[in-house]
Design a binder for these strands. Sequence first.
DNA 1: AATAAAATCACACTTTCGGGTGAATGCTTT
DNA 2: AAAGCATTCACCCGAAAGTGTGATTTTATT
Lengths: 141, 141
Amino acid sequence: MKRTILLYALSLAALIFILKLIEYRFFVRDLSLEFYVGLVAILFTVLGIWAGNKLSRKKTVVITNPEFQFDAARLQSLNISKREYEVLDLMSKGNSNQEIADKLFVSLNTVKTHSSNLFLKLNVRRRTQAVQKAKELQLIP
Amino acid sequence: MKRTILLYALSLAALIFILKLIEYRFFVRDLSLEFYVGLVAILFTVLGIWAGNKLSRKKTVVITNPEFQFDAARLQSLNISKREYEVLDLMSKGNSNQEIADKLFVSLNTVKTHSSNLFLKLNVRRRTQAVQKAKELQLIP
DNA sequence: AATAAAATCACACTTTCGGGTGAATGCTTT
DNA sequence: AAAGCATTCACCCGAAAGTGTGATTTTATT
């Protein structure tokens, strides 16, 4: 964290130095102000992406802790429906399809349909893989 | 992904518009070039951080659980053999019996025997339950 | 009201899993 | 050497899981 901030500061200093050089050329060679500003924008966008990645990678480690942080956004982005999620949840608790069907008051075939669609959305082929992936994606505890 | 790029483009356009306004004021109020450049730098750093985060967020895959403390004593007390544990480990990673057999260079029947004994020792009836219970017992991450 | 999405179920079919039994081999431990 | 354990494998059988297709109903959204 500290090192990232330090590196950011150093990069900032280096960039400002480079910009001063460019500024010099700008006045000497009479380039347009738009070109100059565009260059600054590009450089700092790149720097921002880099710094952002460095800083948010630390956050990833925080997410790694055992405290489950439900990722509703990811659930939505995968287009997993409410019913499919319920099946996933019961699945992760070690229930068979028949047990899931009994608990959700639906037929076995319905559970199969839901789980099949779930596997497609999670891009897996078996329930064990689905559970694994769902945990990685912070969809279930 | 597409939406992020679109939003980035829109933000870019908005920023350029704002910059033009600032540029206008710059000439009118005669602010220093350094101030102007600094502002551009800050704005695009922020934009870069945001865009970078959006684009790289899908990389937050969590596999390691730092809380995991391997409980060798429990493994022994359950009389789980080395080979059975290897099967359990591969099982927890979503492998089918056939895949486990291939990875351990044994036959499918052997894996079935191991997993069957494993289920007895863990007092479960399905691989999903076995994985669940093994995690609870701190046998696997 | 029309359309789209979600949820429901069926049926046929293939694959995978799990139980039960039996058996051969090798490695320790007594 | 004998007993015990782990490891290996085979065969059979039934249960569970998963695939594919098609169809109906319910619920949201426009």
